[in-house]
């Protein structure tokens, strides 16, 4: 189990998409997927297609906006960018994840009965 890729927890993909858009500026779906794969060091199990479910969700909530544009290599693609409300949401969610991960670290650091594998 240890060597397989990480399954994404519910909602984490949305956060990754927001963070990617916040740091990289407008990107098309493929670009976002690639950035996440690269950033995670290919640790994340991601069908690139699932990114579109996340994108439509975020768009419907008004956290990102979309516009058709042209890519570097002259392909027509839909470009997504984060909105002001999206940035606010990102701050909130990031803070939440930070806290959660700190707590998780601490809990998991408790001495267990069995030695770690």
């Amino acid at each position: 189990m240890g060597h397989s890729k990480l399954d994404l927890l519910q909602g984490t993909l949305d956060l990754m998409v927001l963070q990617t858009l916040a740091s990289m500026g407008p990107l098309h779906g493929y670009g976002i997927a690639r950035r996440i794969e690269q950033a995670s060091g290919d640790e994340v199990l991601l069908n690139q297609g699932t990114i579109y479910a996340s994108l439509v969700r975020l768009q419907q909530r008004g956290w990102i906006s979309a516009e058709w544009g042209t890519s570097d290599n002259n392909r027509k693609a839909k470009f997504y960018s984060i909105t002001k409300r999206g940035r606010k949401q990102l701050t909130e969610d990031a803070a939440y994840w930070q806290r959660l991960s700190t707590v998780m670290d601490r809990v998991l650091a408790l001495p267990g009965e069995e030695a770690e594998p």
């Binding site: 997927a33 069908n47 690139q48 297609g49 699932t50 579109y52 479910a53 996340s54 439509v56």
Partner: peptide, 17 residues
């Protein structure tokens, strides 16, 4: 393969939309 199938992608998208 990376995309995970065109039909699945579209279906998934529609479900969420």
């Amino acid at each position: 393969i990376q995309l995970g199938g065109v039909a699945q992608t579209k279906e998934n998208y529609r479900d969420h939309r």
